[in-house]
Structures are given as C-alpha cells and as structure tokens.
Amino acid sequence: MENISSSHILIVTALNDWDWTSRILFFSFALPCYLLTIVLNATLIMIIAFEKALHEPMYIFLCNLCINDLCGTTGFYPRALTYLLTERNVILHAECIVQGFVIIVFSIGEFTNLSVMAVDRYIAICRPLHYHRIMSPFTVLSLVTFIWVFPCSVGAMSISLTLKYPLCRHDINRIFCENLSLLNLACKQDFFQGTFNGFVYISMGVFFVFVLFSYFKIILACRKSKVSREKFYSTCIPHLISFLNTTCGLSDSVCTQFKVETLSHVVYTFLSIINLTVPPIVNPVIYGIKLGPIRAKLLYIFRKLRINNL
C-alpha cells in the first residue's frame, strides 16, 4: 500500500469562476455571519455554564449542541474566508484531512445531540413523574458521552478509509474538504468503504426515525394534558425546528455520495455550505427566543448593559 504524503496539494475549484467583486461581496456577508455565530453560541454556552438554575439535562444537552456548532463553523469559515481574500485556492492534504474530520464530527454530532434531546423531551412529557429518576447524573453523563464518542469514532474510521489509497485527482469542487469528496479523489475504492458509508447513512436514518417516533408519542401525550401541551410549545418546538433544519442539510451529502451531476454549479455550491452555516446560527436564536429561562437571562443582561451605558 502506498503512503500518502502530507505535502500533497489539493486544489479547491469551486471558486475558480468567481471574480474579485463576487469574492469581496461573499466575504462581506460571510465574515459577519461567522462572528454572529460565535457570539450567539458562546453567549448561550456561558449563560448555561454560569447560571446554576440551568444545570439541568435539557440545558446541558443544548450547551453541547452549541459547542458542536462552534466546532463545525470554526472548521469551515476561516479556510473559506482565506480562499475568498487570497485567490489562492489550495490546501495541504493533511490540513484537508483535519477539516474533513471536524466537519464529519460536526454533521453527525448534530444528529446525536438532537436525538438525545428528543429522548430528554420524551421522558419529560410522557413520563414526568419518573423524569428525575431516569435522567440521573449517570444517565446524563452517559448520553453526553454518546453525543461525542459516536461522531468521533465515525470520523476516525472515515479518515482511516480516506488514507487507505493514494490520490489520483487533486481537485475538490467545493470550498471545503469533506470526507466523501476526498474518497472520490482516491485511485481506488473498495467494498468496505461503501459498506461503511452505508452504515453511516443507515445510522442517520435510525436517528431520524427515532426522533419522529419520539415526537409522535409526545404529540399523543399532549392531547391528554394541558401541562404537556405547554411543555411541548415551550421546549419541543425549538428542537423540532433545529432537527428539520439539520435534516434538510443532508441533501448535500447525498448528492456527493451518489455524484449527482444534474444540479447547476451554483445550486451545488449552495447545498454544500447550507448545513455548515444555517443550523449553527439558527439554533441559538430559536432556543434563546423560545426557552423562557434563557430568554429571561438574555433580557436581564441587555437591560444591565443598557443601564451601564447610560
């Protein structure tokens, strides 16, 4: 087996047709989005971390979701912004591997986070009398461990498969490195790679069905109880919006895996970044608006800042 040298250069071709004006316009839009994503997620993380009243399972899982969003956007934005400013659309193969690992951990981590949050909401609404017994500190720790261990394990396996064969191509038709695109650059792909990719998609499908089933049971429970309906509107609606938002982003990975070539270049580029940019900025907004304790804390901070500035 031939080893792949870390000095290999990969060429990012997605921006080849962009003129300097288009690059500056996109940079002017992307940089504020990145900074806003950092501020929003970091604010929620700090509020949950420093507010003892929020040290509950639901907010602990939300904190992990925000951390995952920060990791994903930081893995994408800096390199993309560099491409836009320098017009030097190249990346070392080793750097590309690291970025691919971060992005796959982020993508799968969104599903593990949202699936665990669905478990928490199901128990809170369908079995409220047993909630604190079931969601013990050990259970919460186990679920948080699963949130991170499963994506990291899949990411490590994906990277090991990517490094298995040398590269025969060096052009990536998108503005970031992603594991499936790297696999398509390899000189050879074996049966195990396809099997593992199938396992990843089946896992995502299982998470999707699991969340839908959980909410089917939650909706049935809400029909019988006014208290359950109030919990649903206040805590489940943000989760459902986040889940559907993340699920829509899977269209890009499916297109990459099956090498869909019927899409226009603009549409394909848009699909390639939507899952990395939209959920991380939408999630903290909808949770900050809908969850009463977080909204109250945010309003308190804004009032305090306003008074100090007077």
Rank of each mutant, 00 (worst) to 15 (best):
I4C: 13
F207S: 04
S115H: 02
K217M: 08
Y233I: 12
E178D: 13
Y233Q: 14
E51N: 14
S6F: 08
I202L: 15
N309F: 06
K231R: 15
D69C: 14
Y287I: 01
D171I: 06
F29A: 09
S203V: 12
F111E: 00
M117Q: 15
T195S: 15
L62G: 00
I97Q: 09
E2A: 11
I281P: 10
C33D: 08
T37L: 03
Y77Q: 12
L10T: 08
K224T: 07
V200E: 12
N64W: 02
G249Q: 08
V98H: 09
V102R: 09
P137V: 01
T21P: 04
L167A: 07
L85V: 11
L299T: 09
V119K: 02
G198K: 11
F192S: 13
V254Q: 05
S251C: 10
R169Y: 15
S142I: 00
V200Q: 11
L299Y: 08
P166W: 12
G288R: 01
F210C: 08
T256P: 00
H265M: 11
L129A: 14
N173F: 15
Q99F: 07
T162W: 08
V209W: 08
C66H: 00
A186Q: 15
F302I: 09
I24C: 05
V12Q: 12
I175V: 13
I48W: 03
L81E: 05
C152K: 05
N16M: 11
H93M: 11
C255E: 02
L84F: 04
D120G: 00
E56Y: 01
S28Q: 04
Y165L: 06
F26C: 08
T86Y: 03
K164E: 13
L62V: 01
L143H: 00
V211Q: 02
I301P: 03
F176D: 05
K231E: 15
N308I: 00
F138K: 07
N283S: 10
S234Q: 12
A94C: 13
I134A: 03
E87H: 11
Y165A: 10
Y300K: 13
T269E: 11
V39I: 15
L167G: 07
F191D: 14
L212H: 06
L25H: 07
L129Q: 14
D171F: 08
L183G: 07
S22L: 08
A94E: 14
V200H: 04
N173K: 13
T74H: 06
P280D: 01
I202G: 07
L276M: 13
S242D: 15
I237Q: 04
Y77F: 15
N275E: 14
L212P: 05
L298Y: 05
T112P: 01
L65P: 00
G109P: 01
